[in-house]
Design a protein around this nucleic acid. Structure first.
Lengths: 227, 227
DNA sequence: ACAAAAGTGTTGAGAGTACACCCATGC
DNA sequence: GCATGGGTGTACTCTCAACACTTTTGT
């Protein structure tokens, strides 16, 4: 770290890959750019880091501006800094992944964006910048996190059934799992509380669970067998 | 990503945590700062990212300047950007971890640094900036990588014995492992080639191995039992 | 012959996997 | 009473963990 002189500096942004499960699909939130470059193209939400805020604060601010959401799972992914990744200028982007249950969210386009929309991960439009690479990286991380930690629960509402959990695992991995084994695995982790019984269904009412508090981040789980 | 205007920008540096095994200890390379702030204090090697180089190129350049080493294992860790982490100025640092076998390295202090030295991880001096946090993060990542990938082999010379490998695992985890089980585990990974026989020892000569080429990064290994 | 480290195999416990039927409710 | 998803147990396989003695070389 040599002395500060006035060298030219790169710009620093944060970009956020926000995942949610909606209509039984894994979706990503994208915004349509209102400005050049890549005007009108879809892109990950993001923006410049302000001088007085930390990177995580910047990510939270952008998240809040785009979605109204607060207190959602947020994790730094990777920092991309190829000199040519932005055609105008040197821009380094610190990327984050956010996971949410979609009822926490009310979309509203902010000032630099003309539209905000959820896209299924298998129907992603052409994206601006190196955002395809970022999204691919995020997906890998998401799957990895699902295998080894309990982040999946941050995509559910507070109370949920076993099939709610199994369903999001199946969606994220494009795979069916055996109900009995899945159940056993999740129960053996010992991270759930039993809640009451759901009443409003026209079939046998499922048990409801909630996640225990203060679960450590990495639990070393959740290797799953096929259908 | 809003439009470019001339907002003030943070400075961007890379800092590198370089690990090696020397004298049966896990060591980190530190430099003594030649400049304010924190003049004369020990710190991780690093420096500003130039406008025309990528982050990884910047890390490689710094690595090369400090150690003369080339072609060593390098991986991005995390980006730290608290507004107050540098007392002068807003500085965001992208951190990297490097792993090397110490014979690849010839230390030479570069221009902004008065001394370069290996420190045992249990004898780390007071460090400048938030470098203690960075080092702690790197150590976690190192241990994690040892458990799940074959990065350990990048801290060995090209040919090595089983006890060479076992020894670096024991050093990194502060733990003894059972020789037979360790052996079995490593052999079951199927990533080693047998080489000739070492001759220059005064006891039964061990077999030499080398790592096969093109081993995929994550191998899902290496959970190990105690002594 | 002795010192030093290398090399090697078996057994038991626990986790992972495959697999199919009855249950509780609303209509 | 029927349609819908909910809920549950067992047997087999395979991986992990614990454990000790013989071998090869140099001196």
């Amino acid at each position: 770290m040599p002395e500060k002189k006035e060298y030219p500096k790169p710009a620093v942004t944060v970009d956020i890959v926000i995942f949610s499960i909606i209509d039984k699909k894994l979706k990503v939130l994208l915004v349509r750019r209102g400005l050049e470059p890549f005007k009108n193209m879809w892109a990950l939400p993001g923006g410049f880091v302000k001088m007085e805020e930390s990177l995580e604060e910047a990510a939270k601010r952008e998240l809040h501006e785009e979605t109204g959401a607060q207190d959602i799972y947020l994790e730094q992914l990777y920092t991309f800094g190829q000199p040519d990744r932005d055609p105008r200028d040197r821009v380094i982007t610190v990327t984050y992944m956010a996971l949410t249950n979609s009822d926490k969210i009310k979309l509203h386009a902010d000032t630099d964006v003309s539209e905000v929309k959820w896209f299924s991960i298998d129907e992603i439009p052409k994206l601006a910048f190196d955002h395809p690479k970022i999204l691919e990286y995020a997906l890998k991380r998401l799957r990895w996190k699902f295998e080894y930690t309990s982040v999946a629960f941050s995509m559910l509402s507070e109370k949920f059934t076993m099939s709610d959990i199994q369903s999001i695992y199946e969606i994220v991995f494009h795979k069916k799992f055996d109900k009995r084994n899945f159940n056993k695995k999740i129960r053996s982790l010992n991270i759930l509380n039993k809640e009451s019984i759901k009443k409003d269904v026209s079939y046998r009412p499922p048990k409801l669970y909630s996640l225990k508090k203060n679960i450590p981040e990495v639990i070393e789980i959740i290797k799953l067998s096929n259908s």
